[in-house]
Each structure stands twice: as C-alpha cells, then as structure tokens.
Simulated assay, not measured.
Amino acid sequence: MSLLGRKFPAPVARPMAPFYISGLVILYGVNSFANALASTDEYKNDPRNPNLKTQGSNGH
C-alpha cells in the first residue's frame, strides 16, 4: 500500500505547459523592466539600488 494513495494516470505537465511558459515570460519581462528602471537617472544614485558601486569600503 502506498503512502500517497492510489496513482491515477492523469497528465499534469503537458496541459499546464502554457501556464509554465507564460509564467517564465512574465518573470523575464518584470526582471527586464526592474533592471531598466534601476538604471534610470532618477534611481542611479539611490543607496537602495543594488547596482550602485560604493567607492570606499567600511571594513565589512
């Protein structure tokens, strides 16, 4: 007897493939948009910007 119960031969990955693909496309688009916004003049010098390179080191 299986711990998960009876196995049913229902396809899962093939019917859900369009949703997986569209999710990846949306994530790629959001990432590209966030990177574009982080490199604008308004946020280029913001200390919360992860792309900001600090000139001096504070020992950490």
Rank of each mutant, 00 (worst) to 15 (best):
M1Y: 13
M1K: 11
M1G: 12
S2L: 13
L3T: 11
L3Q: 13
L3D: 13
L3K: 13
L3Y: 11
L4Q: 15
G5A: 09
R6C: 03
R6W: 10
R6D: 12
K7P: 09
F8H: 10
P9E: 10
P9F: 03
A10N: 14
A10T: 13
A10G: 00
P11F: 10
P11E: 14
V12D: 08
V12R: 12
A13N: 14
A13R: 15
A13W: 12
R14Y: 00
R14F: 10
R14A: 14
R14S: 13
P15M: 11
M16R: 15
M16C: 14
A17K: 12
A17I: 01
P18E: 00
P18F: 05
F19R: 10
F19G: 09
F19C: 13
F19I: 15
F19A: 13
F19K: 08
Y20T: 05
Y20S: 04
I21A: 10
S22E: 10
S22T: 13
G23D: 02
G23W: 02
G23H: 09
V25F: 05
I26R: 05
I26Q: 05
I26E: 01
L27D: 09
Y28W: 14
Y28H: 10
G29H: 00
G29F: 00
V30K: 05
V30P: 01
V30T: 03
V30G: 02
N31G: 07
N31I: 09
N31D: 09
S32H: 07
S32W: 04
F33I: 04
F33E: 00
A34M: 00
A34I: 01
N35S: 07
A36L: 07
L37D: 00
L37H: 02
L37T: 05
L37M: 15
A38W: 01
S39G: 02
S39T: 08
T40Y: 03
D41L: 09
D41M: 07
D41E: 15
E42Y: 07
E42M: 08
E42I: 07
E42G: 06
Y43S: 08
Y43V: 03
K44V: 05
K44I: 02
N45H: 10
N45I: 06
N45F: 04
D46R: 02
D46E: 07
D46V: 07
D46F: 03
D46M: 01
D46L: 08
D46K: 02
D46A: 04
P47L: 01
R48F: 05
R48A: 06
N49A: 02
P50T: 03
N51K: 14
N51I: 04
L52N: 00
L52E: 06
K53E: 07
K53A: 00
T54I: 05
T54W: 07
G56N: 14
G56R: 12
G56D: 11
G56C: 11
S57K: 06
S57C: 10
G59V: 07
G59K: 03
G59F: 03
H60I: 12
H60K: 13
